[in-house]
Design a protein around this nucleic acid. Structure first.
Lengths: 325, 325
DNA sequence: CTGTTAGCGCCTTCAC
DNA sequence: GTGAAGGCGCTAACAG
């Protein structure tokens, strides 16, 4: 494969001239430009972008850290990132970490090693301290609330959304309210737990450890959850389920087993996935697509405006009433 | 940020020695190695991988062309690719094309421009002729049957699976059998259509244009489909649905509207997604994860064994009987 | 075992 | 407008 030098020779100009037409610089005489373009066409030239990346010190690529690609929640966020990236001709490099610290670290190193110009972390297991160490190598944006650090973020308010949802259930007459999460020790879990305790306390209601269920991420987890709840002596009458996949799994299992929703168990989901609409599940729209889009925009601003200070952005949410409560 | 030269100075050795320890070459005296490592640590050195990519002519990255990330079908395949890539420390670059020819072309150019070492095409709209032009720049593997070209592929047999599924429905007593697809003019659609016509002909059954439904890809499409079928004068009694998402959407809509499956309408899905299990949908397991994994392995072989000739690999499938037929 | 040196392919001052 | 030349950071002969 020819390089820029050979094109220069073929076109009878210097490499700088070739470079100029390659980069659409002005000040190139029309006939030379034509000659270069002809040579490029004739020799089937294509730029080796690695050389460009080296000399420019940037790759127009941003990395995305996520536990798994094949998941409705992460999928929606990545989609948002991708749509935005497309607009400005950036590429996406996906790091499927499975929440393994080691894989997350590998991705962080990609930033340090200049393989990506920035990093979006959709979900993580590494500590913020660990992550912050890499902030000096390039912009990092998390999809969760982070303050007082060299890290930007977009998020929606877990606390208030929980509060609103719990109150909603309370107003509908529920007095035994529980909730589900995925990982016990995630950032959002702590916030949610606090919201749960505080809200119920202020409503004068009861909160119980036994009404909190973890490891709920996939459809199947919802089905298992229902199974479990049916064996409980004093089951919750309503559940705040953090993820429509799980809510859907529970809903379908309930239909299969003749458990009436909401009469026997009321549920409210999260993420506003298509399936919740089909199943009539009341849910919270947390604008996942926009979270992804915003995350990208923030990275982009960091790169192009040299703004070093963290950008913090909160996105709103909305309860979508359907018939599962 | 320091470069290799500065590390060399700091450690009192030459750049080659630094390069050697960086790349775990043998033949480096222990004390020098230590000195280099110390300097790296002290100066917080990290390699600029773009330089490595340039000099090596490879990036350890492979590109994946897919219409959209947020989709159960593509998600499963990408997951498979990713798992395999992880094993050998390759990165994945995702190109979300939305079936736009222009976006697909952009991705192809990434191969030409050496940004990726190979390309996996999960689904496409560009012609094979167009794609084959880029094969000279690096290995390309499609997730569909392709023969007689400079393109490798992994696929499962649409024809036989259709045949088997149709026969299955026939044996269950169905005589008015239809099917769904996504895009009319996709590669698989032609094959499926032929399988449909041939199989029913050989069974002595009837095939009808009106029993073929297109634009079926998402959950919602399944719901719409049911709607549509209910307005038909002479609806099919059984449907071969190419995608469990669509099948699930139809199933849920049916439950909502009190349409009995399989009594009033039998369905058989495809992809063996988790949701089909929960809903009791009979489906075809086409091993999407493995398709992804194999696709990566093929690319990897091309890269490391210099095998230029196309690798063609067929994966089996299996009907999973549940209760929707 | 180790250092010197010539690239990898491109961009970008700087003079003309 | 245009070309010469230095440099981006690293690897891999080659010579010792």
């Amino acid at each position: 494969m020819p390089n820029i030098k050979q094109i220069a020779e073929a076109a009878g100009v210097s490499v700088s001239t070739v470079s100029r037409v390659l980069n659409n610089h002005p000040y190139v005489r029309e006939d030379k430009r034509k000659a270069v373009e002809a040579a490029i066409e004739r020799l089937q030239y294509s730029r080796n972008m690695n050389a460009v990346h080296l000399v420019k010190g940037a790759t127009q690529t941003i990395g995305v850290i996520l536990p798994q690609i094949n998941n409705a929640y992460f999928g929606k966020v990545v989609e948002g990132i991708g749509q935005q990236a497309l607009q400005v001709n950036y590429q996406l490099m996906l790091f499927q970490t499975g929440y393994r610290a080691n894989e997350e670290r590998k991705a962080l190193r990609m930033l340090r090693d200049k393989i990506v110009d920035g990093l979006i972390i959709i979900s993580r297991s590494l500590s913020l301290n660990q992550i912050e160490k890499y902030a000096k190598y390039g912009p990092i944006t998390l999809c969760e609330e982070v303050r007082g650090r060299a890290l930007s973020c977009v998020y929606f308010d877990h606390y208030t959304s929980f509060q609103k949802a719990l109150t909603y259930l309370w107003d509908k007459g529920h007095r035994r309210i529980g909730y589900t999460i995925n990982r016990r020790n995630s950032a959002s879990s702590a916030v949610r737990h606090k919201a749960y305790l505080n809200t119920l306390a202020s409503l004068g209601g009861e909160s119980r450890e036994a009404w909190i269920f973890d490891n709920c991420l996939h459809l199947e987890d919802g089905a298992k959850l229902l199974q479990h709840i049916r064996t409980m002596d004093d089951p919750p009458s309503a559940l705040l389920i953090t993820g429509d996949q799980v809510a859907a799994g529970l809903m379908i299992a309930a239909q299969n087993q003749g458990v009436r929703i909401p009469e026997e168990l009321a549920i409210i989901g999260l993420d506003n996935q298509p399936i919740s609409k089909l199943l009539g599940i009341t849910t919270i729209d947390n604008r996942l697509n926009e979270i992804g889009a915003k995350a990208f925009s923030i990275i982009y601003r960091h790169i192009h405006e040299q703004t070093d200070e963290a950008i913090i952005q909160e996105l709103g949410f909305k309860i979508i009433e359907r018939s599962s409560v």
